[in-house]
């Protein structure tokens, strides 16, 4: 490892806040990109299955 200790690693010289906030925002953006389509797919499936059940009842 380049840093001497974990405390050194978190501090990133004097730039800890800058570096870690960037990586934090990156994590948020990535999670959003995974969550958005999965949530949409789940909603679609629920709606679709409800419709299938309704059609089955009517017959």
């Amino acid at each position: 490892m380049y840093f001497e200790s974990w405390a050194d690693f978190w501090a990133m010289g004097k730039h800890g806040l800058y570096v870690w906030s960037c990586y934090g925002i990156a994590v948020v953006v990535m999670i959003y990109n995974i969550w958005a389509p999965l949530a949409q797919q789940k909603r679609f499936k629920q709606r679709y299955l409800r419709q299938l059940r309704r059609e089955a009842q009517q017959q």
Binding site: M1, Y2, M12, G13, G16, Y18, V19, Y23
Partner: peptide, 23 residues
């Protein structure tokens, strides 16, 4: 973040590059 050396002028702030440039 942990193994690459620091940059001579920017110190550790340059480590943002590993997110910024790919994005």
């Amino acid at each position: 973040l942990a193994f690459a050396p620091a940059e001579r002028f920017q110190g550790n702030s340059y480590r943002i590059i590993f997110i910024h440039v790919p994005a």
